[in-house]
């Protein structure tokens, strides 16, 4: 046991050491290869199920809940929000590339003109502001959360397709990567400690999900009713390890989402899903 853990820790050093190397594809493949090596029985596409891919009982519970999701009403409310025209008569669909369909997997993108990472939520707010509406707060689950619980379903099945082109994009990616690998806080954890080195291990009764696949299935409904967006989950994990969390939409979280989403390139999107 100790040998295994020490060996894993050894890999941790290797992961840390690539920090200076600007090659996102190599970073992604390191993670993919490491997880495939550790979990030879798990098919690549099944990483979208997170921890459930490693617990047959929980997965069958997921399957039956997804047949009749108790949160369908919330998604329908989001659909209504999506279809309700702005005061100027325009709609989200008119404002977004491809009518908002099959695009979520392109986000976050690095916007050279703005000089920052732009998330799908930023795109929604950009539409609102351009059409004379107030932006939603990313941390407000009743507005942004509910709306994206539907808007992201329009991209179901699209494969994650994040690009890192040019030195500025690379910088944002590296910043997200640093947040993922760097230990901080009183408990001295990095995201990688739990979601890579110890992924599929149990923390008490909870199976730790691998980072691969984490970004493709949000929002989630925890316990079938509690709506949680991806960055809202970052807040939760920061608190859990006694780190002072950011607000959703911070530069640090946007860069972290950029890194996390890139890692899941090639996996199919699916919104919105049940989680324990």
């Amino acid at each position: 046991m100790k040998k295994i853990i020490l060996a894993l820790a050894g890999l941790g050093i290797v992961f840390g050491a690539v920090a200076a190397n600007a090659n996102p594809e190599a970073d992604r493949m390191k993670i993919v290869n490491y997880l495939e090596h550790r979990n030879p029985d798990v098919k690549f596409d099944n990483y979208v199920y997170g921890a459930l891919a490693f617990d047959a009982d929980a997965k069958s519970q997921y399957d039956s809940i997804m047949d009749f999701p108790p949160f369908i009403g919330v998604i329908e409310q989001g659909e209504k929000m999506w279809n309700t025209p702005f005061k100027n008569g325009k709609t989200y669909a008119e404002c977004m590339p491809n009518g908002g369909k099959m695009i979520a997997g392109n986000y976050p993108v690095y916007d050279e003109k703005l000089g920052k990472v732009v998330t799908f939520e930023d795109l929604i707010n950009d539409c609102r502001v351009k059409n004379g509406e107030a932006a939603y707060s990313y941390s407000d689950m009743k507005t942004m959360g509910v709306l994206t619980s539907y808007a992201r379903t329009l991209s179901d099945g699209m494969k994650m397709n994040i690009k890192v082109d040019g030195p500025s994009a690379q910088k944002a990616f590296d910043d997200g990567k640093m947040t993922f690998y760097k230990r901080t806080g009183q408990l001295n954890f990095s995201c990688a400690n739990c979601h890579l080195d110890n992924a599929t291990n149990h923390l008490r009764s909870e199976i730790l999900s691998p980072v691969l696949g984490q970004a493709v299935h949000f929002p989630v409904f925890r316990g079938g009713e509690n709506l949680v967006t991806l960055q809202n989950r970052f807040v939760g994990c920061f608190k859990q390890v006694r780190q002072v969390p950011d607000k959703e939409g911070s530069t640090r979280y946007n860069n972290l989402e950029y890194f996390l989403s890139y890692v899941s390139n090639g996996l199919p999107l699916k919104a919105s899903v049940f989680r324990k």
Partner: peptide, 15 residues
Amino acid sequence: RNPETYMPPFGKHKI
């Protein structure tokens, strides 16, 4: 004992 360990430093970090 192991700089890469995942176990928190209960005394050093005053946990």
